[in-house]
Amino acid sequence: MKRRGLSQQLNWLIIKITFYSFLTSFTTYAFYPTFVGFFSGKFLPPDFDVGNLGDWITMIVTTILTILVSVLVSAKFARQMIVPLESLTQSAKRVAEGDLTARAVGGAVELGEISALVKDFNRMAETLETMSQDIRTWNAAIAHELRTPVTILRGRLQGLADGIFAPENKLFVSLVHQTDSLTRLIEDLRTLSLAQSGHLHIYYDRVNIDTEICTLSGLVKEDFKESHLSLVLKLNPVVIECDVSRFRQVMLAFLENARRYSVPGVIMISCEEDSEGVMIHIDDEGPGIDQALASTLWDAFVRTDASRSRNSGGTGLGLAVVKAIVQAHGGKVYCEQNALKGTRFSFWLPRAKPSHLI
């Protein structure tokens, strides 16, 4: 059975309403004497004037004209409703078929709930398209990042199997480094996946910030010396509630980032306390970061110098992981130029567990 469109149904509804109104008026007028007699107990005379032929013709013509005007008005209103609804139908069909670029149009006249429905649909379609693009980008980036260590591992192992390479300690150390790179990449991807799905669990504890930073600085001090860098700490005793293991992960990521990419000189770590939390700064002396790229540094697989980052062992996920962890605590991350024309990476953590997480 063929379904009637909205315009047809609306027109038919107007016709029926007008016809029923006319029928009710006619019945009341025609049987007026009976109605009056039933309620008053006194029937009107049989010659009661019920109108002549001209009156009836006038009534019928008026009713027909009323129906025509009602249909015209309802048709115009229906068209205003149908344009966005038909656009929604077609766009939804295209989205269902995989075309995520489909968007609905709201029509010339915005009609409250319909206009809101169109906007919500377009927002949903835009979100789906963005997510689809992100998935494709992520898949390509992950495949690219995995390809290098896997190719090196396979080549070295194949060389060992074929007797091309001698089983030397140096070669095995190189293979271990490649597996370490794979392990870091997998763990970073896992952390980001948990954060994006809302399942990155934060285990809160009271943490002495200056003690933790001093401990971590001692662990990386020798590596910094080899890179001709010196750590300078300007810390105040601050105690906050956070996940101590995740805090260490964030600090080590910033320190490793500074060790790899900063020019020889000083790396300064400082903190500023306010009534709601603590801001921690990591400053270097260069080479600095273009401020046009500062806002994108926190995205996954973004590098300011792709070749240098990859050669130095970076996965392109470090700052994205940092941002995910800090935001999971209810904090914020920042990147800006410092007074030495180098880069200042900062992150703010609340003093206590956010109320929405309690």
Rank of each mutant, 00 (worst) to 15 (best):
G313E: 04
V176C: 02
W56G: 02
L317A: 01
K119R: 15
T58F: 12
H201S: 12
S355D: 13
Q327C: 03
N52K: 07
S91L: 08
V232Y: 09
F121C: 11
S270I: 07
G163H: 03
F247G: 06
L128W: 12
T211E: 13
E129F: 12
M81W: 07
L85M: 13
R3F: 03
E168I: 05
H356F: 14
L88I: 11
C242M: 12
S245D: 15
A300P: 07
H356T: 10
T66M: 11
R79V: 04
L319V: 02
S245C: 11
G51C: 09
K119A: 13
L235G: 08
F19H: 04
G106N: 05
E113A: 13
A92W: 03
R190A: 09
S174V: 04
L153G: 01
S74R: 03
L117E: 10
P167C: 05
V150K: 05
D205V: 04
N52A: 03
R184Q: 10
L349D: 09
A253T: 15
N236D: 15
F48V: 10
A294I: 03
L357A: 05
Q90T: 07
L117R: 04
L192F: 11
L231R: 10
I15T: 11
Y203T: 13
T58H: 07
V263W: 06
D290I: 01
A339R: 11
V50M: 11
K323I: 01
A352K: 13
R248A: 15
L231H: 10
G330F: 07
A292E: 09
Q327H: 07
I186Y: 01
L293V: 00
A328G: 05
K341T: 09
I64A: 13
I114H: 03
T18H: 07
V109I: 15
T215M: 07
N169C: 00
F19L: 14
R248D: 14
V250G: 04
I67H: 00
P287Q: 03
I267P: 01
S355E: 14
Y203P: 00
A104P: 06
D205M: 06
F48M: 05
L171M: 08
V36K: 11
L185M: 14
V321K: 06
L88A: 05
S245L: 15
K16L: 14
V250W: 14
V232R: 14
K170H: 06
E226S: 09
E222L: 10
K221F: 08
I64Y: 11
A258M: 15
T315L: 01
W138I: 11
R3H: 02
C335L: 14
L111Q: 10
S7E: 09
F22Y: 15
Y32L: 14
S7W: 00
R303G: 02
N311S: 07
D47F: 08
V326G: 02
L255T: 05
A102M: 08
V207K: 01
I67G: 08
S70P: 00
A161F: 09
T179F: 13
A143G: 15
